[in-house]
Design a protein around this nucleic acid. Structure first.
Length: 359
DNA sequence: GAATCGTGGGA
DNA sequence: TTCCCAAGATT
């Protein structure tokens, strides 16, 4: 738990109507926090109260699994140990450290935010969610997460986990507004940061989307969904809310588009041929990748691809044939292999170069 | 409000 | 293999 900041009394005492008695509510909070204290995962951003590190973890974790974040988090902090270091860095350096994590706009806004903090806030983070919310890349969730975890502001977070947990507890569909309201009413205002994390942790490790582990759930006795389950051996999965008001579970289940592409892994004398995506591209702008062929090669040597990868980007499933050798690659630049580590390359490129033992 | 933005892993 | 995602924010 991090140091408490001075929070106005009216906010601390703000009470929303809840469908439980005060006694039940207190027991619910106690049970969840007790479970969190005993079972929470040991994660690096849970060992610090440094707002810079908490902020970085929250941005990296947006739509991204913990396992994918861990290594990037460590390396990013080595490279940019402070807001000042990040603010002073070239954008490409930040993108390089972000390479492979995806959603690269997060990295650019992270740097913009750092610059704004240095220029307008003396390099310090605002301690209230309302103020944090105005910074680049910080939305409603992230603002509340930083404010509650770092500064102990009693404000609830709602992410995908919390949404699912609240819906299950209630056993019915709620609008976004109702979910935020419910989360706020559940909040333990003595330990808001820990309580928020306990709700998310529950969703991430117990109240899973498809196969919730109800028998081990610390708050099952307050859960309408669990109570209505016909048998402990059966699992209830989240039903889709395709067209319900406030429905946010699954955004249009458009099926994946399949595409086949060919690219060239062209090496010579310690150099490799790479091309930079347009700076104004909506997809991975300014990042480097292997030169692509417009269509399947049929007269090249060798004609068979060196290797084939599968890689999905947003809604497109790519089958990527990588051809090795000296195929003419008019586009791109010769890049020294040794300098690739300092270049923002796409996740696919990283995957291929690793498979080729180049990086 | 809907569309968009990456990736790797598990069921 | 295929599908579904995971600690959202922006436009």
């Amino acid at each position: 738990m991090c140091a408490r900041a001075a929070i106005p009394a009216e906010k601390r005492l703000a009470a929303s109507p809840v469908p439980r008695t005060g006694k039940n509510l207190a027991a619910f909070r106690r049970a969840l926090l007790r479970w969190y204290d005993r079972h929470r995962r040991d994660l690096p951003w849970r060992k610090t109260c440094d707002p810079y590190r908490i902020w970085l973890s929250e941005i990296m974790l947006q739509q991204t699994r913990v396992a994918a974040v861990l290594e990037h988090y460590r390396i990013f902090l080595e490279r940019f140990p402070s807001v000042e270091a990040l603010a002073a860095a070239p954008e490409d350096a930040v993108l390089t450290a972000w390479s492979g994590l995806g959603y690269y706009r997060r990295a650019r806004m992270l740097r913009q935010c750092a610059q704004e903090l240095v220029q307008n806030h003396g390099g310090r983070f605002p301690d209230r969610a309302e103020a944090l919310r105005t910074l680049p890349g910080i939305g409603r969730y992230t603002a509340a997460a930083i404010a509650s975890i770092v500064f102990e502001e009693p404000t609830a977070v709602v992410d995908g986990n919390v949404e699912r947990v609240v819906q299950r507890l209630q056993g019915r569909d709620l609008t976004d507004q109702q979910i935020w309201q419910q989360a706020q009413s559940f909040l333990n205002t003595s330990r808001p940061g820990d309580f928020n994390q306990s709700m998310m942790e529950l969703g991430a490790t117990v109240c899973l989307p498809r196969d919730p582990k109800c028998p081990t759930c610390p708050v099952r006795k307050w859960c309408v969904t669990e109570q209505s389950r016909p048998s402990a051996n059966r699992t209830i999965t989240m039903e889709r809310r395709a067209s319900s008001p406030g429905g946010t579970l699954t955004p249009s289940s458009s099926r994946q588009v399949k595409k086949e592409i060919w690219c060239v892994l062209n090496q010579r004398d310690g150099y490799i041929r790479l091309v930079q995506r347009p700076r104004d591209s909506s997809l991975m702008p300014g990042m480097w990748e292997l030169p692509q062929l417009s269509r399947k090669p049929h007269r090249t040597t060798p004609s068979a691809p060196w290797r084939t990868f599968r890689h999905s980007i947003t809604r497109t499933d790519f089958t990527v044939h990588v051809h090795a050798g000296r195929a003419a690659a008019a586009k791109g630049k010769w890049i020294p292999v040794a300098s690739i580590v300092g270049l923002p390359i796409t996740g696919l490129t990283r995957k291929i170069l690793k498979a080729a033992a180049i990086i």
